[in-house]
Design a protein around this nucleic acid. Structure first.
Length: 565
RNA sequence: UGCCGGGUAGUGUAGUGGUAGCACAACGGCCUUUGGAGCCGUACGCCCAGGUUCGAACCCUGGCCCGGCAGCCA
């Protein structure tokens, strides 16, 4: 046991430690992350990815990035690119070990030939429908293919002819000769190769036969020297077949197969208020419920990135979630906690008024602007300070004023003073309304003795609100994101269609937002805490177009909202 | 009802024969120029029933409940 793994206790670390004690694979630990390039990575993939990566780190081993590209019909180079970008962004380093299953198709073909020669594989002419019928059912055993006893020579010839392109898609397959009466369907002479006349994004038209996952994956693991091949629970039933392939690889291809790779399964991630299946995410995109795979409401890595989520928060989340074999659904609140924790110690505090209410401070001299020095992070002095202009006309948050406040409302009311954050204490003297009775402006007075940091008034006000001086403020657009679904579990509940549970308020766009001038100087990609409102990601800052767009990453914890319920 | 896997606070996860812990959430309080952060505290759990044992979350037996599997997908 290495000291690096102390403190981490999960069944995978336990089994790896045991393997190490037993001296398996020369005491090496080598993991991999094997995405299929047919879609975008999401937070569930990040769990698997980081798990594999950290195992390699913790056990002083190696980690490979490998694209499982054995099905040219579904896979595209575009996804290879996006997946690589996402994994890089997460901070994963695969060093020089970027691999593609398709790179070793030739070795796999040779392995298949040896299986044939060993009498352990055969070319089968049954149609797909017939193969299904012959396979039997969950409760009845299958029956052997009439082609099962072809001679080695005939099989070799037919397999070569499959490769050379003589047959149409689906005409023939190569199958393993295992056991048609096995209780495990995967062992009932599984298909190893199928004919697919399709252009592959890497091998082009070199091949018209492609290996199946169950044949390709274990063999590739062995080739790459993977010691621990982690996958999700639904592959448990495939493990005997995985082992069958590994055993045969070791026996029949000893010149290139040295490692006894082993598969172990863990439960995939589920989270409340979202869906994590490629099929469902695809529906959200294709049916226009979101604006694309990288919509900030999507649980995709690309979406989370635009949302303002940090790689550190994702990594922290992955560790806290842990890993086990039991099905589980993690509370979204845990993810949000990880976000706030990371952002809380890295994001500068700034002021922005999302829904402005004009306040005129009647006893402030006309035209006078005072520059106030505010801390960028109150709990972290090294983050420094900035100057914030203050003047006669400011905006405050509309919700921070109430004419007839409920009990415990600590903000601005006709009878109650509040402090403007980093500035002065003000009192509301007059409410201006339009003809409809809507409040359009407040007339307030300030107390000159209450300047922040040099208060001589002795006043103890309960409330502190944020504000922005109008003249120097910068207008911005803010996208308020909330969870995409309004139900903890979007997929059960009474409806049979998860899209019925989409949160109609998952995106609210505010275009009349005013931010303090310092924020407008920041480059796109910056993250801020808007005081009292939440964490925001500056997605676009294009001065030439006057465009300033923020995405809300996560709200602050809100005790008042809770009291109010 | 074939094969495989799984059930520890609300959620997630430790603990593999010796006082059931941790985190998030919840609740109460303190503190606060963010109703943020921080601090202190409270409550809640071994699926059930038998058995073995001085002693069982852990071992045995029998139930119950949940998940996966019949692509030439991965």
């Amino acid at each position: 046991m290495s000291s690096a793994t102390e403190g981490k206790t999960n069944f995978i670390y336990t089994l790896i430690n045991k393997d190490l004690e037993e001296g398996k694979n020369n005491g090496e630990v080598h993991t991999r992350f094997p995405p299929e390039p047919n879609g975008y990575l999401h937070i569930g993939h990040a769990k698997a990815l980081l798990l594999n990566y950290k195992i390699a780190l913790d056990f002083n081993g190696k980690f490979n990035l490998r694209f499982d590209d054995t099905n040219p019909i579904k896979e595209e180079q575009m996804f290879v690119d996006s997946i690589i970008a996402d994994i890089r962004w997460l901070g994963i380093d695969w060093e020089e070990r970027l691999f593609f299953s398709s790179s070793s198709f030739e070795a796999k073909f040779a392995f298949a030939e040896r299986l044939i020669k060993a009498g352990r594989a055969f070319v089968c002419d049954l149609t797909p429908e017939e193969i299904r019928e012959y396979r039997g059912t969950l409760t009845e055993s299958g029956k052997e293919s009439p082609y099962r006893n072809r001679t080695v020579a005939e099989n070799i010839t037919l397999f070569a002819r499959m490769r050379s392109g003589e047959f149409q898609n689906g005409a023939r397959v190569l199958r393993a000769k295992i056991d048609m009466s096995s209780g495990n369907l995967n062992m009932r002479d599984p298909v190893l190769y199928r004919i697919l006349h399709a252009h592959h994004h890497r091998t082009g038209d070199t091949w018209c036969i492609y290996p199946m996952y169950d044949f390709d994956h274990p063999f590739t693991d062995v080739l790459e020297g993977i010691t621990h091949s982690l996958c999700s629970i639904e592959y448990s039933d495939h493990r005997p077949l995985y082992d069958w392939v590994v055993e045969n690889a070791l026996e029949l291809m000893p010149e290139i197969c040295k490692y006894r790779s082993q598969q172990n399964e863990f439960a995939r991630l589920n989270m409340t208020y979202t869906v994590l299946s490629k099929r469902k995410l695809r529906r959200l995109v294709e049916e226009g419920f979101v604006h694309g795979w990288d919509d900030p409401r999507m649980p995709t890595i690309a979406g989370l990135r635009r949302r303002g989520v940090t790689p550190a928060a994702i990594a922290d989340f992955q560790e806290r979630v842990g890993v086990a074999r039991a099905d589980s659904t993690v509370d979204l609140a845990l993810f949000e906690h990880c976000l706030r924790e990371d952002l809380g110690k890295t994001a500068l505090r700034m002021m922005a008024v999302l829904e402005p209410l004009k306040v005129v401070i009647t006893n402030w001299p006309l035209g006078k602007i005072e520059l106030l020095e505010l801390e960028n992070m109150p709990d972290e002095k090294t983050a420094g300070t900035r100057l914030v202009p203050f003047g006669r006309e400011i905006y405050v948050e509309a919700e921070d004023f109430m004419e007839e406040p409920p009990k415990k409302f600590h903000r601005l009311t006709p009878g109650q003073e509040v402090r403007l954050k980093g500035a002065y204490v003000i009192r509301c003297e007059e409410i201006i309304k339009d003809t409809a009775g809507k409040i359009t402006e407040l007339r307030c007075t300030y107390d000159p003795l209450t300047k922040s940091g040099e208060d001589e008034s002795g006043k103890k006000v309960k409330g502190v609100i944020h504000w922005v001086e109008i003249q120097h403020s910068v207008k911005a657009t803010v996208r308020l994101y909330d969870s995409l679904f309004s139900k903890e579990n979007p997929e059960d509940e009474e409806t049979d269609d998860f899209t019925a549970n989409i949160n109609p308020n998952s995106l609210i766009t505010l275009t009349n937002v005013f931010v303090e001038p310092a924020i407008a100087q920041a480059p796109a990609g910056s993250r801020f805490q808007f005081i009292r409102k939440g964490y925001f990601y500056l997605e676009v800052n294009d001065a030439s177009k006057g465009e300033l767009v923020f995405n809300r990453t996560v709200v602050l914890k809100d005790t008042w909202a809770k009291i109010n319920k």
